[in-house]
Amino acid sequence: MNDLALAAKTEAALKPKISAKGVDVYYADNHAIKNVDVNILDKTVTAFIGPSGCGKSTFLRCLNRMNDTIDIARIEGEILLDGEDIYDPKVDPVQLRAKVGMVFQKPNPFPKSIFDNVSYGPRIHGMARNKAELEEIVESALRRAALWDEVKDRLLAPGTGLSGGQQQRLCIARAVATAPEVLLMDEPCSALDPIATAQIEELIDELRQNYSLVIVTHSMQQAARVSQKTAFFHLGNLVEYGETGHIFTNPEDSRTEAYITGRIG
């Protein structure tokens, strides 16, 4: 890679893909997120860490308006995706979610075949002009999710018949197939064993080439392994946000230090 390309890439990486300003979230009377400001960079893995109930998943779900499906949730503040407010009335949350994909804690393949699971997004968004193109999209998504070699002979078998780790990679392939710009992952490895976890982590590292990734995790080792940026949430506040290496070796806030050394949590 020549210097120019490298410089261009660095610049792209520095430009915030998502920028949140003064975000507050309420679940009925419960103030779940308190005045959070954060800039998420492109082609970077950002980890959200923090004790259970600190609001990291809630905040993650704000980024693609998944909280819209919860009646009692109310969001204030501003979240910009490429400079556009995603809570603007002009924005269609459905379109937004095609751009900001999501992978959930528990693998949730649809009760359909592997092929239909992956082609679900491209089909509803009309991304393929014909069957061949659709097959191409499915294959490349499965390859990206490092699942192609394992399932290429049984694309018509039900997705629910795969193992837990394969199911989660199928869900990642499903998300990748819609060609999102940002991929949100809500504790994607918490239901998986260490081997499957290692595969997913490797995958996350590869996906960083093309996407901006945000991952919520309870495992600090995982955050340290896969992310470049880390945000520490505590009781609905964003306590500290910075370079992963910095947060884990030299935290500025005493609460961050207490959490990563295992004294609170």
């Binding site: 998944m66 095609a98 009760p111 509803i124």
Partner: peptide, 27 residues
């Protein structure tokens, strides 16, 4: 039908009726 199915579909940018037609009803 588990909420996770609907979340999965919404997360891919499907509308409510697409989710019902293609995920909830088949399930």
């Amino acid at each position: 039908v588990p909420q996770a199915m609907r979340d999965g579909s919404f997360g891919l940018g499907a509308t409510h009726s697409e989710t019902i037609r293609q995920v909830v009803i088949p399930a």
